[in-house]
């Protein structure tokens, strides 16, 4: 007799736990408001990344097409993956002194691990993380980017 009672207990207990599970899924079925899907390409306009989001390294230029990079290469030394390459040139100043200036700032996005060390160590805060995250390209060469814009120069204030 005991065996039969146990048998029934097991049976109904089991069914009860199954129904509890179905209650949860059923609840979400009838509550379509809980849907959390983001309609990604459609919501591009409203999609806002967080300020600190580490999208890609970029070099902000002001309205005069000037940046703050002094080509000191600290970022290049600190980058664990060798994804930054700072090419500098010697420029002769008006007063005849030779000065190192940034020629091209090459950033290999394909090798970057977004550890943020370069930005932390930069003494001039010349590079920042920008929030672009759509990095897909058809050609790997396109991931090698030059961060300083053509014709840009060093910001006056930093020079001193």
């Amino acid at each position: 007799m005991n065996a039969i009672i146990n048998y029934l207990k097991e049976l109904f207990g089991g069914i009860k736990t199954l129904l509890t599970g179905m209650k949860v899924t059923g609840y979400y079925f009838v509550h379509p408001r809980q849907i959390i899907t983001q309609q990604y390409p459609e919501n591009r306009k409203t999609l806002k990344m967080f300020d600190r989001f580490k999208g890609e390294v970029s070099m902000p230029h002001d309205e005069n097409n000037q940046h703050k990079c002094t080509a000191c290469s600290i970022c290049e030394i600190n980058c664990p993956n060798g994804s930054i390459e700072v090419i500098s040139k010697q420029v002769e100043k008006e007063d005849g002194k030779k000065k190192k200036e940034l020629d091209t700032y090459i950033y290999k996005l394909s090798m970057c691990t977004f550890c943020g060390i370069c930005i932390k160590v930069c003494p001039q805060d010349a590079i920042v993380f920008s929030q672009g995250f759509e990095h897909a390209v058809f050609n790997r060469e396109k991931l090698i980017k030059t961060l300083n814009k053509p014709g840009s120069s060093l910001k006056e204030k930093v020079k001193e």
């Binding site: 899924t25 059923g26 979400y28 079925f29 379509p32 809980q34 849907i35 959390i36 899907t37 309609q39």
Partner: peptide, 13 residues
């Protein structure tokens, strides 16, 4: 669609 709604998704759209 049913599984999408159950799983808090939109499903094919």
């Amino acid at each position: 669609k049913v599984c999408a709604f159950i799983q808090n998704r939109v499903g094919p759209n």
